[in-house]
């Protein structure tokens, strides 16, 4: 049971960063970026290049990859989403499907379909009584908490954070108050790009680096974000942890390969009962 809880928390933490990225972009741009899964895969592959092809240590490759992909995310926005900004969330959603397909096939073209692994030293798992914690899980724990802390501090206490929250809260008033929306949008994509890359690395550590990795995370990430109330970035983290635990506990009664079904059932139940999210307050558009 203790082991299940630990695994559930780790699974939830893996979801937390992309869910945070998804709801961050949603809160400012009002569209659900379906390509968030592909962003995760792309980031993971960029870091793979640094780590395995160029021989950097993983932390360095991850930092470089995150910085690079953050810029790419801004570039994608500039090319694909910005021209469609005034055309509504649905058009952007469909466009993000196009972006997702394009990115995934860039990966397939250059890297093929075979799963790959990062070059990290193999270490024995640590034991705490009955509970086993391997090094990858420890890395995930530390990295996700660190990233969440940084984002939370930016959000809560900095000028940039106030800018982002102001635009998310009331874009018209933010413009009246002298905040440039396009700058906020660029910052949001930078942060989202870094978060998805980092999560791609962690997912790659936990399992493998493969073109499908983002796709398998897409549904859980959306569910986690909806659990939190999709326009509420920090609550998305709570949603991710809840979902991770639910998925792991469900393995007691369901085969492991049906994780996705657990996710789906959680989402459906939530949409029927509390569509504004488990932790969110009712969304009022005014």
């Amino acid at each position: 049971m203790g082991q299940l809880l630990v695994n559930g928390i780790v699974a939830g933490l893996l979801l937390a960063l992309p869910a945070l990225a998804l709801s961050l972009t949603f809160s400012v741009l009002r569209f659900a970026n379906y390509a968030v899964g592909s962003y995760l895969s792309c980031g993971a592959y960029l870091v793979y290049i640094g780590n395995v092809v160029l021989g950097m240590p993983l932390w360095l490759a991850a930092s470089a990859g995150a910085a690079l992909f953050a810029v790419i995310a801004v570039g994608i926005d500039w090319l694909a989403y910005r021209p469609l900004r005034d055309r509504g969330g649905v058009t952007l959603l469909v466009a993000s499907m196009g972006v997702a397909i394009a990115l995934e096939n860039v990966i397939r073209f250059f890297a093929g379909n075979l799963p790959r692994a990062y070059n990290v030293p193999v270490a024995r798992p640590m034991r705490f009584g009955d509970i086993r914690l391997n090094h990858e899980q420890l890395t995930i724990l530390v990295a996700v908490f660190a990233a969440l802390a940084v984002v939370w501090i930016i959000f809560r206490f900095t000028r940039l954070g106030r800018m982002m929250r102001a635009v998310a809260d009331n874009p018209d008033l933010a413009a009246v108050r002298g905040i440039s929306r396009s700058r906020v949008v660029a910052y949001v994509w930078l942060i989202a790009g870094m978060l998805t890359t980092l999560s791609g690395v962690l997912v790659g550590l936990d399992a493998n680096v493969e073109p499908q990795m983002g796709w398998t995370y897409l549904l859980p990430v959306f569910t986690a974000a909806i659990l939190g109330g999709i326009a509420n970035p920090m609550a998305a983290v709570a949603g991710a942890l809840t979902l991770g635990l639910a998925e792991e506990l469900a393995t007691l009664v369901m085969p492991v390969h049906y994780r996705m079904i657990v996710t789906f059932l959680v989402m459906v139940a939530l949409l029927l009962v509390r569509p504004w999210g488990l932790f969110g307050t009712r969304w009022v558009t005014k």
């Binding site: 090319l79 694909a80 021209p83 469609l84 055309r87 058009t91 469909v94 466009a95 499907m97 196009g98 972006v99 997702a100 397909i101 394009a102 990115l103 995934e104 096939n105 860039v106 397939r108 073209f109 093929g112 379909n113």
Partner: peptide, 20 residues
């Protein structure tokens, strides 16, 4: 597989380009 990747890449890019 490379050819399939190119084809699908173009589908994705084409979708966005058409919308724009």
């Amino acid at each position: 597989s490379e050819l399939a990747a190119i084809r699908l890449f173009l589908v994705g890019v084409g979708l966005v380009a058409l919308l724009i």
